[in-house]
Design a protein around this nucleic acid. Structure first.
Lengths: 156, 156
DNA sequence: TGTGGATACTTTAGGTTTATATAGTCACTT
DNA sequence: AAGTGACTATATAAACCTAAAGTATCCACA
């Protein structure tokens, strides 16, 4: 059994990561249950992005925003298309690209489901004071930009 | 287009959730890459739990700790068993229960891979000061207990 | 001694995710 | 004008994940 020079500083960072993951999973579980019977979480994420971009979004744009691989989006968009909520539209100027857009039905659907989901989120985090929310939000904003840099740097 | 009474307070909570999810996904992506070729993240999570419990863990205990459904664990443990890293052991006192334990090979494997993963985490979060880590860790701890209560309460 | 209810794991069906491979398209170079 | 390399979307296999239904076991109580 190799004696393991685990410094307090390392231990604290592991603890940070475990708690971050736990919060994410707890919230995810609750919010998924709120959407159930409506649509899946990844499908909702795509719809919510499309709703903000009436001009449509390409697979790569969605991929960056949602931190999901483009290969993955193929299937999600397939299912949204099958439900009549979204549609593909090839870019005539660059036939490699495909714009994904909401259908009218998809837009109606968003008008219903986005406020509902927003309400679920507000309720789930309702136990925090507005002040605590502001602080945590700012800290996580800072953390996410740090992580972006870190990951980007590690790739090179 | 229904005009949408989205209060600043709600908006802030949605922002908190989006940033939490973004941090989780960024970190997950990086840490998964560090484990690749070794084992998958869910398999690692199970191994790390087993390593702390030499007496073994039941599916339900693992399910609670990892926030993963028991049905899901069946497959993960199957794969660990196939790799010779873990084994099932029926509880003679209650034959409904199964203890999952590390094999010797599994223990050796953990001795190697856990410190490596710990190092990856420490490096990924290395950009934060020890102080910032402590604060964020405490805030997330508080958030996770609040979410647990909230979810539990919602179930009733 | 049954019998009903609870518990523990497995199974099934539908989705999601990653990694990898493939093919079409475009821009730029030679 | 053809070739190279990069970008975009798709296809596939293996793993993961949830919810819900199914099976075996245990326990309390009549």
């Amino acid at each position: 059994m190799a004696d393991n020079p685990l410094t307090p500083s390392e231990r604290a960072r592991v603890g940070l990561w475990l708690r971050l993951a736990r919060c994410y999973n707890l919230a995810m579980r609750d919010l998924r249950a709120g959407l159930r019977e409506e649509c899946t979480m990844p499908q909702f994420d795509v719809l919510a992005q499309l709703e903000r971009s009436p001009e449509g979004l390409t697979f790569s744009a969605l991929s960056e925003k949602l931190l999901v691989t483009a290969g993955n989006l193929t299937g999600i968009v397939d299912r949204l298309e099958k439900q009549g909520l979204a549609r593909r539209e090839t870019n005539p100027a660059d036939r490699r690209q495909t714009f994904i857009k909401l259908t009218d039905k998809g837009r109606e659907y968003c008008d219903k489901i986005i406020p509902q989901h927003t309400h679920d989120i507000a309720k789930l985090f309702g136990g925090l004071s507005d002040n605590a929310v502001q602080n945590l939000r700012a800290d996580l904003e800072q953390l996410s930009t740090m992580l972006s840099k870190q990951v980007e740097h590690a790739e090179t």
